[in-house]
């Protein structure tokens, strides 16, 4: 079935079997392998991408559901060589260990910071509850999101000033 959608700002008009999962299309057809399959049943959050700015689980999403929509993966948040503040913050705080869950965490954090630029630590912890990390114990991930939020607010203030 013919679908129209954008992925990381690029437009696609493509014939895709309707039973294709979004995760498989992104990984196998577009080589966007930041999108990770950790469980396949929507429990771990590793496959999170944004669709029209909202986080969704790409392992539970079928291609017809993104018809006419904009998909954003981790690959799409980098500006050339310039990392997004969330990416830099995950590096600086030690929020990355094995790295398999990291793309999903960055994508849900991006959604959070778009909606709430100044979340408390508890708000961050609640927001990321649907994503599992087995390495870090979460604290440094919360640190990363908190730090990125501060950088982004300061950056915004700098722009506004």
């Amino acid at each position: 079935m013919e679908l129209e959608f954008t992925v990381n700002g690029r437009e696609y008009v493509q014939d895709v079997p309707p039973d294709t999962r979004l995760i498989d299309f992104l990984r196998e057809d577009l080589n966007l392998t930041s999108v990770k399959e950790g469980c396949g049943v929507g429990e771990c959050g590793s496959c999170t991408v944004l669709v029209d700015g909202k986080s969704i689980l790409s392992c539970l999403t079928y291609m017809p559901e993104i018809d006419g929509k904009e998909v954003l993966t981790l690959e799409g948040i980098t500006d050339g060589d310039e990392l997004h503040p969330l990416q830099q913050a995950f590096i600086d705080t030690g929020g990355v260990q094995c790295g398999f869950c990291t793309p999903g965490f960055i994508m849900v954090a991006l959604e959070l910071l778009n909606e709430n630029p100044d979340p408390t630590r508890d708000e961050i912890r609640k927001w990321i509850e649907g994503n599992i990390c087995r390495c870090t114990g979460y604290r440094k991930i919360v640190d990363a999101i908190e730090l990125a939020a501060r950088w982004m607010r300061e950056g915004q203030e700098a722009v506004e000033a």
Binding site: T33, S34, K36, T73, D92, V96, T102
Partner: peptide, 23 residues
Amino acid sequence: EGSRRVDARDKVTGDAQFAADIF
């Protein structure tokens, strides 16, 4: 030193290649 991880950049950009990412 609490140096940044040498593998962190690849992991925050999605460049790190895990087994399932090899085609």
